[in-house]
Design a binder for these strands. Sequence first.
RNA 1: GUGGAUGUAGCUCAGUUGGUUAGAGUGCCAGGUUGUGGCCCUGGAGGUCGUCGGUUCGAAACCGAUCAUCCACCCCA
Length: 427
Amino acid sequence: MLQQINAIRGTKDFLPDEIHKLRYIEKTAVSVSERFGYYEMRTPVFEHTELFSRGVGDTTDVVQKEMYTFNDKGGRSITLRPEGTAGAARAFLEHGLFNEALPQKIFYLASCYRYEKPQSGRWREFRQFGVECFGSPTPFADAEVITLACVFFNDLGISNLQLEINSLGCPKCRKDYQKALYDYFISHKGSLCATCLDRLERTPLRILDCKSPVCGDISALAPVALDYLCCDCSEHFFKVKECLDATQVKYTVNPHIVRGLDYYTRTVFEFVSTDEKTKGLVCGGGGRYDGLLEELGSTSIPACGFGIGVDRTLLVMEAQEITFPEKSAVDIVIAATDDTSRLKAAFIADSLRYKGYAVIIDIMDRSLKAQMKFANKTGARYTAVIGENEIKSDFVELKNMKTGTKTEITISDFTNDFTDALLSDFD
RNA sequence: GUGGAUGUAGCUCAGUUGGUUAGAGUGCCAGGUUGUGGCCCUGGAGGUCGUCGGUUCGAAACCGAUCAUCCACCCCA
């Protein structure tokens, strides 16, 4: 026997048994997006590596150590997308969507790839529901994408999710803030952990995010970005909060949120699970990225958006024991007793399928009893047995599998409108 | 990338201080008479005990390596 080949580390199979859950989440994402006037865009899974190193940022962990990068046969450096925004922004620019009526509001459902050590809620291939609003500088846009995310989680019946928001300011005020931060941390240089010492020169903002108790204590007293916002940024943040209040979206301001992607300016936010079983899991995050499109070679175009982890959302829903719509069941199983009847059963099944019903017949050459058992397992609503007697008499019994009651009809009636009336009676 | 736990039938797990042909429940398949599911009864298939190497007369059990899963950190979706 040859050795079996298993799935790649950090990837996950969704089997027929649970795929309806994923579909339900995706369907909800589409529905919510369209209710806000966001339309789907699909971009390739791989892009030029440079798109991410320039867009997401060279200093980020994602770009530095988590990307699936390889050279294709033409010698191009290619990267499997680690997130969705860069590709969407690239497509927006490449196809000149900025010439259309602004804002351009986009959503996508995309698999993303990051080379990380896997654990539950963290996979090397994961699905992301993302939304991007290109062209609007106003706080109403920030609030709109946040509200959209809230409606999404609400539609799915998810509770115990905390929305945390913050403002990182624009490049102008961030500069002042970073200097203040640097000065503060340099005075505590002796106490910081090794990773944070490394961050000090590179990206001092991220020290605020450190979970080590010592750094946490130091961070707690560190200067807060919100205190360093310039007038414009300060007003923008105030209005975002005002909009959220208007739509009754609940949030807490967390001055320590620092997103891991470089392109964010001003508003940033995260949805964090507060549920016992999935505590601390970040289900989604986003913010404003007014500098990204310029970084990708365009004129300055403001934008904002978010990414929500579909798999993580599923994880939280399962932990909260939320009921999903049932997977679609088979309408009718047509069992047959002998080879001649099998042909007749196949004919009837096909006629019904043309009419739109889900019909299955036995293709395992099983006994009638086994066919009935199988029908039961598939959750079929009705069964019908075709045999010598039925073919002779032209009558067939349609059995309701829930109640066990049988209704006699002619075979020709079976495939015409009479069936519609009969089947629609089912509760 | 760092630290820790785990790895026995498709699934959930037993397996006594290392000792004959490795177990249960569940699922799967087939029967319980001649053409009808769910319950019950009977039987069957299915495991080189994650993999490789070592210790031993003998290893699922002990040791090492490796792979995988999970947890914490890191990071984020």
